Computed example of a mutant assay.
Amino acid sequence: MATSKKGDKAKIHDLLFQALETEMGGIEVYTAALSCATNEDLAKEWQGYLDETTTHKQVLLTVFEELGLDPNEEVPSREVVRHHGKSLVAAIELAKTGGDPAAAQIVAAECVVLAETKDHQNWELIGLVADKLSGAEAKVLKKAYDAVEKDEDHHLYHTMGWSRELWIEALGFPAVLPPPEEVKKVESAIGASRAEQNREKML
């Protein structure tokens, strides 16, 4: 079915509701993850991400205000996203009861990666919508995207690095901590791939 260049407004708004719910859930996920962070560098990193995620929520609330949307409106997709977020928090809390702080920290890192994968995609799509639309709505979305996108790349690729290196350490092999993504200040998928490929040289 052909779609217009104006896009599907209902679906665009649905994406924004999902994005807001993702940020709200992300705040809960980072709060839970921080309670498992035994590595001081990781704890500092996640505290920064929590602060940024709180800011991203406010950026979206501004978008909602400027577009005349009700941030409290319940749409079916929000319930699904909320369920995902609460499930990740539950997984972190379950890991904490296992009595192995190192294992719980890995679970927390994996849960952050899962949460940030959805979050990252939301913002990529918001950026796409901003590019495809024109007029006031495009400007509002572009401003929000520009304010957030670099943070989202950082959150996803750096935590993926932490998760990998913590696993390698747990498996009994030399790990690069903080991970190469952190040291090389990776901000893209290509950069993350290069950092991972060069990790052996950093041991």
Rank of each mutant, 00 (worst) to 15 (best):
S188C: 02
A130Q: 04
K118A: 12
K6V: 04
D146K: 01
Q197H: 03
L203V: 15
G135H: 00
Y49S: 09
T55G: 03
I190R: 08
E79L: 15
E65F: 06
V63F: 06
E165D: 10
K118L: 05
M24W: 06
I106K: 15
H120L: 06
E74Y: 14
Q58P: 01
V81Q: 07
N39F: 00
H84R: 01
G48M: 10
I190T: 12
A102E: 13
T53G: 11
V80A: 14
L203Q: 13
E66C: 06
D146I: 00
A2I: 03
S134T: 10
G26M: 00
H158Q: 13
G191C: 02
V107Y: 13
I190H: 07
Y49E: 11
L141C: 02
K143P: 08
T117M: 00
K6C: 01
V80L: 15
G99A: 14
S193K: 04
T159D: 03
S77A: 14
E28G: 04
K143H: 10
Y30A: 15
V29N: 09
K96T: 13
K9M: 00
C36R: 10
T117F: 00
A19N: 06
L171W: 15
E21L: 01
D14C: 08
M24L: 12
E110Y: 13
S35H: 07
D119R: 02
V63E: 05
A175I: 08
K6F: 12
D100A: 08
V29F: 11
A138W: 02
Q18H: 13
H13T: 00
L61T: 11
E137S: 03
I92R: 08
P71R: 05
E65A: 12
K201Y: 11
R82W: 03
N72K: 12
K150I: 10
N39P: 02
K132F: 09
A95D: 09
K86S: 05
V148T: 09
K44F: 08
R78Y: 07
L125A: 09
L133G: 05
H83L: 06
K44E: 13
K5E: 07
A189F: 09
F173W: 05
K118G: 05
K143W: 07
L133R: 01
L203H: 09
E45N: 10
A102D: 11
I27M: 04
P101H: 14
K184W: 15
D119W: 03
L61Q: 11
A138R: 00
G85Q: 00
D100V: 06
G172E: 03
H13A: 02
G25E: 05
G99T: 14
L34F: 10
K143C: 05
Y157V: 01
A19F: 02
D119V: 03
S35T: 14
A175F: 04
K44Y: 13
A136C: 05
A10M: 05
K57C: 10
M160Q: 11
G161Q: 06
R78N: 07
H13N: 12
L60F: 15
A104D: 07
M160S: 05
W167H: 11
K118F: 06
E45P: 04
A32D: 14
T55H: 01
P174L: 00
L166E: 01
G135P: 03
P76Q: 13
K11S: 14
E45T: 12
V81W: 06
